[in-house]
Design a protein around this nucleic acid. Structure first.
Lengths: 339, 339
DNA sequence: TTGAAAGCGCTACCAG
DNA sequence: CTGGTAGCGCTTTCAA
């Protein structure tokens, strides 16, 4: 495989100095039209592409922001990255994307790789609880955590606890007592919050906790159908399910519809395409990647342009989409609206 | 915002030469344990991250492959990128991703940006018909086109024409005469192929073409619901719809189910999540991003390791998933199986 | 085992 | 308007 032509090759062919080539390529003024044209022809003839590494090395700053998510195959993160890229492009920057696969070691490698590329800032959906290897690095490059909070860092999250408590409370109000929690993975702080809120709400309403209704569902296993179906092998199966995230929501919907259990109530944390077309349509807590991504990239751009800003935790309110599946009443007598 | 510490800072703090730091960081042998430890402490203390640009500049080759798609928000492309990243990581490379937004100028910018980053190879879902600015560059960096073919380049595509002809022929066989084509965008070669195959099949069966049944549906407009609903304002509305791609399939399903027109037959080019849960379940031509991505990255890795390989067009066979919506009979008398 | 120095491709500074 | 030259941070000879 041949080497790429460099600025010197262009200069030689156009019979000018490399500085002149640099001027033409970067559109700086002060070049005679004739010279300029000669250089441009040489650039095309050789298929010259400026070496970005050299440029970055010389100038000391990169021209991209880094984005690190669990996996791009998840529609929530795909939308998030898409929004961020569009906005970054408008700010004249590219985006360097990487995924962790929910593996802390891989997260570390990817972050260091991005850091080495001199990114101007990083948006991270954190996996590891601890990022101390970033402590120093942060001093020179801003980082915004998304979806999961991390103490001492800037973050953009949603009101997990409130939304979950409200959803579970509503299920109880309409007569459910056996409410399952699908998608429980203690490794993820967001999920832990939601799980905690779920438990708390049950207890507040005097319902005994049954761990079998919140079976572990490691995030590495994309498909939550089996977990869901397992719930119906219990002596007292659930009459309602709370799905802890998008991935879980899709799996639960699939399992319920695939096994004809459409009488089971379902509320999903995260809306998914076609959720509104199922019968009954799936009720969701809307966890809009578009809005979250926009807030995160705006915050990051702000931090890039205004160094020294103190970390801030931005909590976005979610909205509940009541489409039907979450309003299916349970067997217990409906409770009066609590004060 | 402070500057990043460099190898010199580490060397100074550890009281060694920069070469020794380099040795430790890159895990090369021949460093006294005591020295090594001193260096490692300094690295941590300063939060030193090697400058990838300098490394790439010096060595002349990058450590990543580039991937350019229409938009990462499309689940098909998201899966494609995900598969490619996983495989690249296992090959010790990162992935530099960029999206074109279906804009030829943006495609060009993104490609040149990736090229400037010294990527080892590029996987591209092409938008523009012409990439002559890449002609020279190809000599030094392999490129694999995906999903849409381009003469003279390596490509990985599916059997668009055959799959479309078979699907449309089947719709005719079960009694449909008014068959619509949703998602027509003449700017995309893949869609043109599918549209051509659709027209040809109708003509072969003696059915007159009606352009109103294949309304233009520019790819920039993500939502195809309005286009779909418009078809039912025709005096003679369609009894069957062929959706030209994933995006169109989702929109059509949404429109049909949302307006209660579930008696209209539908075959979608591309499977989507939950398609099998609708009533009737949506019949698809399966256009598996996982398989396509795998073949593409394997091909690229091969080209990287074996320069000078001749371009090859790899055509993957698709599979038809008959779930119900594509098997709804039409009003015309069913035709006998053709010889 | 360790260090000094050259140079990757480019831009910035200062001359001409 | 144009060109020479220094040097970005790193790796890679070649010496010590």
């Amino acid at each position: 495989m041949r080497r790429h032509p460099g600025i010197k090759d262009v200069a030689a062919l156009a019979q000018v100095s490399i500085k002149t080539v640099s001027r033409v390529v970067n559109g700086e003024g002060s070049v005679l039209p004739a010279t300029r044209e000669r250089v441009e022809r040489s650039v095309i003839e050789l298929g010259y592409v400026p070496n970005g590494s050299a440029r970055i090395l010389k100038s000391g700053v990169g021209d991209a922001v880094g984005v690190v998510v669990d996996t791009i195959a998840d529609p929530f993160f795909a939308s998030l990255v898409s929004v961020i890229e569009d906005r970054a492009l408008r700010a004249g920057m590219g985006v360097l994307f990487a995924s962790t696969g929910l593996d802390a070691a891989r997260e570390r490698d990817q972050l260091l790789r991005l850091a080495g590329q001199q990114v101007r800032g990083i948006i991270l959906v954190p996996v590891a609880e601890n990022h101390e290897y970033l402590e120093r690095y942060r001093a020179s490059t801003p980082i915004v955590m998304v979806d999961r909070h991390m103490e001492g860092y800037d973050s953009v999250v949603v009101d997990d606890v409130d939304a979950t408590k409200a959803a579970v409370a509503d299920l109880i109000r309409i007569g459910h007592r056996r409410i399952a929690f699908v998608g429980y993975d203690a490794a993820l702080s967001t999920i832990r919050s939601r799980h905690g809120a779920y438990q708390e709400t049950l207890v507040e309403h005097g319902i005994a906790l049954d761990p079998r209704l919140a079976p572990p569902s490691p995030a590495e296993i994309f498909d939550t159908r089996l977990t869901t179906l397992g719930l119906f092998d219990l002596q007292e199966p659930p009459t309602a399910i709370f799905a802890a995230n998008l991935r879980a929501g899709i799996g639960v919907a699939d399992a319920l519809h695939g096994s004809g259990r459409t009488h089971v109530a379902l509320i999903s944390f995260g809306d998914f395409s076609l959720a509104h077309l199922l019968t009954p349509a799936v009720s969701c807590i809307d966890h809009d990647a578009y809005r979250i991504g926009n807030v995160a990239i705006e915050r990051l751009l702000h931090l890039i342009n205004t160094p020294g800003t103190l970390p801030q935790r931005i909590v976005l309110a979610t909205e509940r989409l009541e489409r039907g599946s979450g309003e299916i009443p349970g067997p217990a007598p409906a409770m009066a609206e609590s004060a």
